[in-house]
């Protein structure tokens, strides 16, 4: 893996990097093309975010070597992810669930 720094292993890694690079380029093109599809807004957002998440995960796992990273860092990132989701969901959740809506349907 990436912590094996023998020349053969590094050269093998380099081929992986180039493969990921290709995948990212394809992902970018697909995102742009998908945005011209005539689908509903919700589906469009869903598609774009799925592609972005895949691309982001590729960068994180391969370029940033997360797939072979130490447990300490993964644990921290997992916690961060939890709070990130909290930060994304609760404010909008509150905007959608208001008291005035409850009393005047």
């Amino acid at each position: 893996m990436s912590h094996d720094h023998s020349p053969e292993a590094v050269k093998k890694e380099v081929r992986v990097y180039l493969g990921v690079f290709g995948a990212l380029l394809v992902g970018t093109i697909v995102t742009v093309l998908a945005s011209y599809l005539k689908v509903s807004t919700a589906l469009g957002i869903f598609i774009a975010l799925v592609i972005a998440t895949v691309k982001g995960s590729l960068v994180a796992c391969f370029f940033m070597h997360l797939r072979s990273e130490k447990i300490m860092i993964l644990a921290f990132l997992l916690l961060m992810l939890v709070f990130f989701v909290v930060l994304m969901i609760l404010p909008i959740g509150m905007q959608m669930d208001t008291f005035t809506d409850n009393i005047s349907p």
């Binding site: 995102t31 945005s35 807004t41 469009g44 972005a52 960068v59 994180a60 940033m64």
Partner: peptide, 22 residues
């Protein structure tokens, strides 16, 4: 510094569809 630079890239990967395409 590589990790930082990848992160800058990663942010853009999300910024791009969210701002321009959605």
């Amino acid at each position: 510094v590589g990790l930082y630079w990848h992160f800058v890239d990663l942010v853009w990967i999300f910024l791009f569809p969210v701002l321009y395409l959605l």
